[in-house]
């Protein structure tokens, strides 16, 4: 049950002396980083595979963890060995995102001072009402999916990546909401603030994304959920956002363009751990087979979503195919297993 090394001399009766780090990390023979000291092996509910929680084996949550996490086809001999390539910890996250938010505040102030929103072309303002501000529903769905990854992760180093991802999605839910209020002031009558839900629920441009996210929300196998969200769905969302940013810049809306670029910076950080994680997680044949199956199931949904959305954007029809090509390339990179040793 306790898979932490407690000191190799323990059973010889020798007295354990102090170590330079946690006994769990002492075995790795090199000085642990702050990231490792505070992030590795902080999750205990994966120690006992049969009864994860200290309650009767049959309680619903024990069954849930067994079925959806421990019996997932995504397997690894030691999930605790996973490391975030960015070595992100809480304090570096809030410090870095505080700076990023100051930058975003600066963008908003600067364009506000220029009377940016009032100078948008009316047709583009309508496009924003239809294809930008309903985004908060999509991002909130992603926030919820990431939250599920946190609760189900088999190790703390993985759960931590998902916590930051959940927070990043909420960051952009908030900024989109902020922009919604600003645009509602500048463009009353276009349905900013009042019309997003209907558009998210009914506008054909959003429906494939909505289907993707709703199906993801109802997917509880931990491995499938984390792979479909991070390898397929979010890159598909990003492909749409990239196309939206291109349109915005073309249509005389640099503010939306720059905000989306700032948002995609968070995605780039996510892609780094996802790539590392997918390499790590596919050390076993069973995992590789499962990932291949899941990709085959989810990729068509992702592509359909990015295509429907992208092709609806002004100028999007001409660009969507290229963007989807790029998205496939990214997905292939993210999904790649580690190259086998020669």
């Amino acid at each position: 049950m306790d898979n932490a090394p407690t000191g190799s001399d323990a059973r010889t009766g020798a007295t354990l002396g102090p170590l330079k780090t946690w006994s769990y990390l002492a075995a790795q023979k090199r000085r642990p980083s702050e990231y490792e000291i505070v992030s590795v092996h902080t999750l205990y509910n994966n120690d006992n595979a049969q009864v994860p929680l200290e309650l009767a084996a049959g309680v619903p949550m024990n069954r849930w963890y067994r079925r959806y996490r421990n019996e997932s086809r995504l397997r690894h001999a030691d999930w605790n060995a996973f490391r975030d390539p960015d070595a992100r910890v809480y304090r570096s996250y809030v410090a870095a995102q505080d700076k990023e938010e100051i930058y975003v505040d600066g963008l908003l102030d600067q364009y506000n001072a220029l009377g940016h929103d009032a100078r948008l072309a009316p047709a583009w303002a309508e496009t924003l009402a239809r294809l930008y501000t309903p985004l908060r529903y999509l991002l909130h769905a992603a926030q919820m999916c990431a939250a599920y990854s946190v609760t189900m992760a088999p190790s703390s180093t993985l759960a931590n990546c998902a916590v930051f991802e959940m927070a990043d999605q909420f960051r952009w839910v908030s900024r989109v909401a902020y922009r919604t209020a600003e645009l509602a002031k500048a463009w009353p009558g276009l349905g900013f603030r009042t019309g997003e839900r209907r558009r998210w629920e009914e506008d054909p441009a959003w429906q494939p994304y909505r289907m993707l996210m709703e199906k993801l929300l109802a997917t509880y196998d931990w491995g499938e959920s984390v792979v479909a969200l991070n390898v397929v769905a979010l890159p598909a969302v990003d492909a749409g956002l990239r196309l939206l940013a291109d349109s915005a810049l073309e249509q005389g809306d640099p503010l939306t363009g720059f905000l989306l670029e700032a948002q995609l910076k968070d995605s780039a950080r996510r892609n780094r751990w996802v790539r590392a994680f997918m390499q790590f997680a596919q050390d076993q044949d069973g995992s590789r087979d499962a990932v291949a199956e899941w990709l085959a199931k989810w990729q068509p949904l992702g592509e359909a979503a990015a295509a429907a959305y992208g092709e609806d954007l002004p100028g999007g029809a001409g660009r969507a195919a290229t963007a989807i090509q790029a998205m496939r390339g990214l997905q292939d990179t993210l999904a790649a297993a580690r190259a086998a040793a020669p």
Partner: peptide, 20 residues
Amino acid sequence: WYDIARDTNWTPRYASVEEI
């Protein structure tokens, strides 16, 4: 704008409320 950021429930169609 705060209320907008927490106006994020919608009526699902491709999965049921009970499934989500």
